[in-house]
Design a binder for these strands. Sequence first.
DNA 1: GCGATCAGCT
DNA 2: CACAGCTGATCGC
Length: 424
Amino acid sequence: MENGLISVDRWTAGSQVYFLTHLHSDHTQGLTSGWARGPLFCSRLTAKLFPTRFPDFDLTLLRVLDIGVWNSVPLVSPSSGSRTVARVMAIDAHHCPGAVMFLFRGDFGCLLYTGDFRWETTGERAKMARAMLVNALNGRTVDNLHLDNTYCNPSYDFPPREVAAQEIVNLIASHPKHDVVIGIDSLGKEDLLLHIALSLGIKIWVWPERLQTMHILGFHDTFTTKTSLTRVRAVPRYSFSIETLEALNATRPTIGIMPSGLPWVVRPVKGDANLSGSHLTARYKKRQLSGSSTGVEKLHQYMYSVLYSDHSCFSEIQEFMELVQPTIVKGIVCSSACYVEPLYFFGRLCGVFSVDSHVQTKRRSERAADVEINKSAAESGVEAVRKKMRSRAYYAAGGVKVSRTSVLRRLSRGAKIMDNDSAD
DNA sequence: GCGATCAGCT
DNA sequence: CACAGCTGATCGC
């Protein structure tokens, strides 16, 4: 199969143009400061943040795409030499600063690559992104969808980030004498920290590199690297464990907060005979939907987990699927905890079932794609899917290639298996 | 010695 | 089992 002319979040040779959805490292694997394979399209904010990740990168290779505007990308077919033009629009993915999805139109039809995204139904930004996508689609549907399927399972249900953020504010306010540490990554969760700072009228400590990032993002007063100025500190998540929290409590009363779409549990450290040590492990746990239930869970004497996610929950993915009505869909996350081929749940919304995927066989580094824009290849891809769809075994499996054990595992976790499992 | 890749861990 | 990301070992240059 001919290499795609366009790569999204993929940095191997063979494409004429490259697109980056956002700067999280699992989307930049293979991208280095010395990279020079061709023009790299990204959002304005991602371009601004670029030097923080790739200090010596040749910035003249960057092509900024403004949000919500169609751009033309001229391409030359490597086989025939004929010229063609693809059009592309960047749309706010509401995932982390600079994150966008890319909507492509061309000979190959209409292709949407979501990157990582959060499709909330409330809030101004979410409504704007929705309106922008609806406007760009202009009544048409998406032929080919590459979907952030991180939480593509009905088991995953969490509130909008505004709600989760307020719960975190309440939690901090109910511990007025405590220091607070919050685990974050190198990009993302800024809105949460701003909400905390604004609501409580305080500054928030961050580590020096993170302060630089905050300044690039335009937050000049809220964050500080002076510990004496605040009791709330945002720390790198990897440096943050029950043990560090216990050590901190030897000096000052301190609580820890883990914002995440995955609930956490506390586990003893392997090989620790004394069982004194412990660490955090993400694990799916069925939550009670009682009225008193919130996204806040006390994991430990000092540690709280809060369901705050920069990825869409299941119902949001469902909303999104109903809007774009893709003909073909492929998950970009191939090894999440509960990987399910997206059409396992959404098959009835789509014209064709999913192209074959690598269920639970690929690592997360595979979250990227050559976008196949060769027309005949795209058509033969559709034909291949249709052919596969005609096979009895495929229908019998409900359109999903998963092992029996994996189905049982999902059942044992309480996931709802929809009743079109064997029918239709 | 340096970058790329991977194992291991959180 | 891990949202995303760190550290350290190893390998080829």
